[in-house]
């Protein structure tokens, strides 16, 4: 049953958009154009991102990631991961596949979670954009407050996942 839900939604949605196009149903047309805008902005970033992920998996040695971001890594691991997250482009749809590769190369759970959080709220290009609309003071406070919270919440979440059945579901083989 479950495997029919997704194709079902997709087909119904496609039919709805098509019919809207032909009958000139305005909300349907608008939803269709929303879809296109988003799909295009994603498709611009995704190919390069996935190629870089592929190159990372092939070239970067597991020992290097394990040593710097693994179980025995120090607080310095946060410096590296914030640097990587801070320069990640795109949204969470890029961050998730990157986090999967980091995890498989031996980064510990907390560090991977920190990457995801930081890729959402600690991105440098985004900060510049944010400051131009909300002021430098806002952005500076937000970054200063976020930094300790990212580390605390990641350590907490990482421990919770490590010590439960959630660990077995984390980043399955095909990701």
């Amino acid at each position: 049953m479950k495997r029919f839900i997704q194709p079902g939604i997709t087909v119904v949605y496609a039919l709805f958009i098509l019919i809207s196009l032909f009958t000139g149903f305005e909300p349907g047309r608008e939803i269709g154009s929303n879809f296109l805008t988003f799909a295009l902005s994603m498709l611009k970033i995704l190919p390069a991102s996935f190629i870089l992920i592929g190159l990372f998996e092939v070239w970067v040695k597991k020992e290097i990631i394990q040593r710097h971001l693994g179980e025995k890594s120090s607080l310095k691991a946060y410096f590296w991961i914030l640097l990587l997250a801070g320069t990640t482009v795109g949204g969470m749809y890029v961050a998730f596949p990157v986090s999967a590769s980091l995890y498989k190369k031996g980064a510990r759970t907390s560090i991977v979670i920190a990457y995801l959080t930081a890729a959402a709220i600690f991105r440098i290009p985004m900060a510049i954009f944010e400051a131009s609309f909300l002021g430098l003071k806002f952005t500076l406070i937000r970054f200063a407050v976020s930094l300790p919270l990212i580390i605390i919440s990641s350590e907490l979440l990482g421990k919770m996942i490590e010590n439960s059945s959630m660990k077995t579901e984390l980043f399955p083989e095909e990701t």
């Binding site: 749809y93 979670i113 979440l157 996942i161 959630m166 980043f171 399955p172 990701t175």
Partner: peptide
């Protein structure tokens, strides 16, 4: 839907709650 594929259902929900 994307997050669940990577983190699993429970860890995904937990991450969102903590965040």
């Amino acid at each position: 839907p994307i997050e669940q594929k990577y983190l699993g259902m429970k860890a995904g929900l937990l991450r969102n709650a903590v965040c």
